[in-house]
């Protein structure tokens, strides 16, 4: 069943191309603004680059998640899923996994222009940077999927989504920035492993909470 639900998410995106495309355009626009408006030395820019990267991701996640749940609202398709004999926890998992795929795909495309346009050096330990980014994406989408489930039934979901999501994502964004900054500056893992543990905890906590509570969250 989970595979069917994920397949549905991917097929809708394949047809509409709205989620990844909107995230890409928005992300590129942010990079361009950063690149054209910053008139600071490359050293200072390098220090801020991790924060800028995750700030950009924070914004594009809101757009992607909002679009993903907008499909469900359009013809009230969400009611069809919720009233079907399906474990609602699986609906959460499908949103989580598909959201993870969409944000990761967007990042893979956007990461090169980010480093090139901001004239930044590619991190020496690129594989570490990618692995930790994948972990942050998992955590980000677990929170985003729960919040979207909460606000989907509201008439003010466009406003409520960022209002609820930004405070919840803030600790994660701080941890992600610390990790990426340390990787960009080639710091030893021992100095920043605590941030990785925090993110792992967020993944486990929000993943379990989302699976267990989605049944009640999505009821009107």
């Amino acid at each position: 069943m989970l595979l069917n639900l994920i397949k549905k998410e991917l097929l809708i995106e394949f047809r509409s191309k709205q989620i990844i495309l909107s995230m890409l355009i928005f992300g590129l626009a942010i990079i361009l603004i950063f690149a054209l408006s910053s008139n600071i030395s490359s050293e200072i820019l390098s220090n801020y680059s991790a924060g800028m990267f995750w700030l950009m991701n924070l914004f594009i996640v809101v757009i992607g998640v909002h679009r993903s749940f907008a499909y469900e609202k359009e013809f009230d398709a969400f009611s069809l899923m919720v009233s079907a004999p399906v474990d609602r926890g699986l609906i959460f998992l499908s949103k989580w996994v598909s959201g993870f795929i969409f944000i990761t795909t967007t990042q893979l495309i956007i990461i090169t222009p980010f480093f090139k346009l901001l004239l930044l050096d590619i991190p020496e330990n690129l594989s570490f940077f990618i692995l930790t980014s994948l972990l942050v994406n998992l955590a980000m989408m677990s929170i985003a999927s729960i919040v979207s489930g909460i606000v989907i039934r509201s008439n003010f979901s466009e406003i409520l989504l960022p209002l609820l999501m930004f405070p919840l994502l803030s600790p994660l964004m701080i941890a992600a920035t610390k990790i990426s900054n340390n990787i960009i500056n080639s710091q030893s893992y021992e100095l920043w492993n605590v941030w990785v543990l925090i993110i792992v905890s967020i993944v486990v906590l929000f993943g379990l909470a989302g699976y267990a509570l989605f049944d009640f969250i999505v009821e009107e």
Binding site: M1, N4, K8, L11, I12, R15, S16, Y71, E74, F75, D76, A77, S79, L80, M81, S83, A84, P85, V86
Partner: peptide, 26 residues
């Protein structure tokens, strides 16, 4: 349950929507 709205996905065809509906119900 069939409500005011069709409860289907706008980007899917009837065939795809019905297939998905059947898969939800095994």
């Amino acid at each position: 349950y069939i409500g005011h709205d069709p409860g289907l996905y706008s980007f899917f065809s009837p065939r795809e929507n019905l297939r998905f509906l059947l898969s939800l119900r095994s």
